[in-house]
């Protein structure tokens, strides 16, 4: 009887070797942290979390630039965090003396938020910059950290 199914037994052996090879390969190749938290490589969480940051966060800025904090407190821009205008400055925060922030062009910068646009919320202060200032840099009149122009200042400016 065995003689007549010998070829099938041989086939079964070949298949078993295949399955065994697969099981061994699997044990050897699957990353160790796979399945630590779920069906994924647990170590991936740490790897993703370890990416360096580019934006330092306003609390970091405020630790040193206390003068600007005081200035901002008086105006509407108190809610705007530093890097919204100044850009990503984690490198500066880490090495303040050698990495210096770029000088900003207020004619472009302010317009990003304040250029008039029908889709902007109605209460938000916006101007058509071309008419409003004719291309003049905004900080000619406005102090960005405290943008509201006091009436007295305008009068003195006008008299000059």
């Amino acid at each position: 009887m065995f003689k007549n199914i010998e070829h099938l037994v041989r086939l079964a052996v070949v298949m078993m070797i295949g399955v065994l090879g697969f099981v061994i390969l699997r044990a050897a190749v699957v990353p160790h942290s796979f399945g630590q938290y779920g069906h994924y490589r647990g170590a991936a969480i740490g790897e993703i979390a370890s990416r360096p940051v580019a934006f330092a966060g306003h609390e970091t800025c405020e630790a040193c630039h206390t003068d600007v904090v005081e200035q901002k407190k008086l105006g509407k821009h108190v809610v705007v965090s530093c890097e919204a205008c100044h850009g990503a400055l984690a490198k500066h925060a880490d090495d303040p003396s050698s990495v210096l922030p770029k000088k900003l062009d207020t004619a472009i910068l302010c317009a990003r938020c304040h250029e008039a646009n029908g889709a902007k919320p109605k209460g938000f202060p916006q101007v058509a910059t071309a008419e409003h200032s004719g291309g003049l840099a905004c900080d000619t009149c406005h102090q960005p950290h405290h943008p509201k122009i006091e009436t007295a200042e305008i009068k003195t400016e006008g008299k000059k």
């Binding site: 969480i45 740490g46 790897e47 370890s50 360096p52 940051v53 330092a56 984690a90 880490d94």
Partner: peptide, 8 residues
């Protein structure tokens, strides 16, 4: 922030 270790 800059050195970054896998454990966060």
């Amino acid at each position: 922030v800059l050195a970054g270790t896998p454990e966060g």
